[in-house]
Simulated assay, not measured.
Amino acid sequence: MTAVAAPLTTPRGPAAPAPELVDVIAGHRGRRSIWGRIPRPVRRMAGPVAILAVWTIGSTSGLLNTDLFPPPSDVAVTAWHLLTDGGLALHVGTSATRVLIGTALGITVGVILAVLAGLTRTGEDLLDWSMQILKAVPNFALTPLLIIWMGIGEGPKIVLITMGVAIAVYINTYSGIRGVDQQLVEMAQTLEARRGTLITQVILPGAMPNFLVGLRLGLSSAWLSLIFAEMINTTEGIGFLMSRAQTNLQFDVSLLVIVIYAVLGLASYALVRLLERLLLSWRNGFAGFEATA
Results as ranks from 00 to 15, higher is better:
187 M>S: 13
115 V>G: 08
191 L>T: 12
132 Q>R: 14
226 L>S: 01
134 L>F: 15
145 L>A: 12
101 I>A: 07
141 A>I: 12
214 G>D: 00
225 S>C: 09
218 G>N: 01
185 V>Y: 09
169 V>H: 00
108 T>H: 12
97 T>Y: 13
128 D>P: 07
187 M>K: 08
181 D>Y: 05
140 F>N: 10
145 L>R: 09
220 S>D: 01
165 V>G: 03
182 Q>K: 15
93 G>W: 05
171 I>Y: 05
87 G>K: 09
226 L>M: 01
188 A>M: 12
97 T>Q: 15
224 L>F: 08
91 H>F: 03
228 F>K: 05
200 T>G: 05
164 G>L: 00
199 I>H: 04
220 S>R: 05
129 W>N: 14
109 V>K: 04
211 F>N: 01
144 P>C: 03
172 N>Q: 03
89 A>E: 09
214 G>N: 00
101 I>D: 06
216 R>Q: 09
166 A>Y: 12
126 L>M: 13
161 I>D: 00
221 S>L: 07
123 G>N: 02
129 W>S: 15
160 L>S: 04
203 I>M: 02
215 L>W: 05
110 G>Y: 06
104 A>V: 15
177 I>Y: 11
192 E>H: 15
161 I>H: 00
120 T>K: 06
219 L>D: 01
94 T>Y: 15
118 G>H: 10
98 R>M: 04
139 N>G: 15
97 T>F: 13
125 D>Y: 14
169 V>G: 01
109 V>C: 03
111 V>E: 07
190 T>K: 06
197 T>I: 07
182 Q>S: 14
100 L>R: 08
200 T>Y: 11
220 S>I: 10
115 V>M: 10
90 L>I: 15
148 I>C: 04
120 T>D: 02
141 A>K: 13
162 T>G: 03
142 L>H: 11
208 M>W: 02
226 L>V: 00
121 R>G: 08
104 A>F: 13
154 E>V: 13
97 T>C: 09
126 L>K: 09
175 S>L: 14
88 L>M: 05
